[in-house]
C-alpha cells in the first residue's frame, strides 16, 4: 500500500489526499512488477547501472502531435516529435491560473526554459532528458548522477527524519525500500525548474515521490507522483520505462553546458557583442 501524503496544507491538499488514495487502489500503475532484480549489497534489489529514458517526454510530458520547432534554421532537426504522453489520465490537473501560465511558458519557451540556460534540471525532469544517468547504490546513500549539466543528487537512505536546511534545484531526497521498489521522497525544491520543454511547471511547494523498480535485467519502471497544492488541483502521476545502456563502453560523458550558453547569457556584455566567443581560446 502506498504511503499517503504528509500533512494536508489546505483544502486543496485535502482533496489531493483523497485523489491519491483513489490512485493508490488502481491496479498495475503503482504495483511493483513481478520480476525480481538480482540482490545487491545488503540483500536489496540491485539497480546499479547507466539508464536512460526513450520517448518524447523531455519535449512534452503530455500527449502531443508533432509540431514545428522554435528555431527556423534547425528545420526538421529542430521539430518536436509526437508522443502519447507519460501523464497518467492524459492531462495535468492545473489550477486555472496555472493552465494560463503554462501556455505563456510555452509561448515564451526559448527565453523561459531553465534547460536552455544549462541550469540543473530538477526532479523528475532529470530522469527523462535525452541523456543517460547513473545509479550508484550503497546502503546509506544512493547517488543519482546525470550527464546533463553534471547534475547529481544524493538520496539519503539512512536518515528518514533529515529535513533539508535549504531549498535546492535538484531537491532533497530521502529514500527507502518497499519490497522490490526504491521509493524516493523529494522535497525542498526552489521552484525554478520545469517538467519539460513545453512549459509544464511547478512551484517551490513541489513534492515528488519517485518509485524505481526493475522490470527486467535491463529495464526499470519509473513512476513519479507529483504534489504541488499551489499549482495543481490534485496530485498526479507520470510513469515510463528506463532502459539500461548496454554498450560495452557506455559511460556518462562530460556535458558541461555552461560553456555552450555563455554567448546566450552574457553575449550582450561582450566588448564586441555579436562576435561570439573570444578571448584566449
Amino acid at each position: 500500500m502506498r504511503k499517503p501524503f504528509g500533512c494536508a496544507r489546505n483544502a486543496i491538499a485535502t482533496a489531493a489526499l483523497g485523489a491519491v488514495l483513489s490512485l493508490a487502489v488502481q491496479p498495475a500503475a503503482g504495483q511493483a512488477p513481478a520480476y525480481k532484480a538480482p540482490r545487491g549489497a545488503e540483500g536489496k534489489p540491485d539497480l546499479n547501472g547507466i539508464w536512460q529514458a526513450l520517448g518524447t517526454a523531455h519535449w512534452d510530458i503530455e500527449g502531443h502531435a508533432a509540431r514545428a520547432g522554435a528555431v527556423v534554421a534547425l528545420g526538421a532537426a529542430g521539430a518536436v516529435p509526437a508522443g502519447p504522453g507519460v501523464v497518467e489520465g492524459g492531462q495535468i490537473p492545473y489550477q486555472p491560473w496555472a493552465a494560463e501560465k503554462r501556455k505563456e511558458n510555452l509561448r515564451n519557451w526559448l527565453a523561459a526554459d531553465p534547460e536552455i540556460k544549462c541550469y540543473m534540471p530538477g526532479v523528475p525532469r532529470a530522469t527523462y532528458m535525452p541523456f543517460p544517468f547513473q545509479i550508484v547504490q550503497t546502503p546509506k546513500h544512493v547517488l543519482m548522477t546525470y550527464e546533463f549539466a553534471g547534475a547529481s543528487r544524493v538520496i539519503h537512505m539512512d536518515r528518514p527524519d533529515f529535513e533539508s536546511p535549504i531549498d535546492t534545484w535538484m531537491g532533497h531526497s530521502r529514500g527507502r525500500w518497499e519490497g522490490e521498489t526504491l521509493v524516493v521522497d523529494v522535497t525542498s525544491f526552489n521552484g525554478q525548474t520545469w517538467f519539460d520543454r513545453a512549459g509544464n511547471f511547478h512551484s517551490d511547494a513541489l513534492r515528488v515521490v519517485e518509485r524505481y523498480s526493475a522490470l527486467s535485467r535491463d529495464a526499470l519502471r519509473y513512476e513519479a507522483t507529483i504534489e504541488d497544492p499551489k499549482v495543481f488541483t490534485r496530485p498526479w502521476r507520470m510513469s515510463m520505462p528506463l532502459y539500461r545502456r548496454l554498450e560495452k563502453n557506455a559511460q556518462l560523458m562530460e556535458f558541461k553546458c555552461v560553456e555552450f550558453v555563455e554567448e546566450l547569457i552574457y553575449g550582450h556584455l561582450r566588448k564586441q557583442p555579436g562576435k561570439g566567443p573570444g578571448g584566449l581560446r
Binding site: 550508484v136 550503497t138 546513500h141 547517488l143 548522477t145 553534471g150 547534475a151 547529481s152 544524493v154 559511460q251
Partner: peptide
C-alpha cells in the same frame, strides 16, 4: 564524498557538484 558500487568509484566534490565516475 566517495561512493563505491561493483565496478565503480564515484568522487563527488562539493565544489561545483562535480561527480567524477571512475570505472
Amino acid at each position: 564524498q566517495l561512493f563505491q558500487a561493483p565496478g565503480y568509484v564515484v568522487i563527488l566534490n562539493e565544489m561545483i557538484n562535480d561527480a567524477r565516475i571512475v570505472p
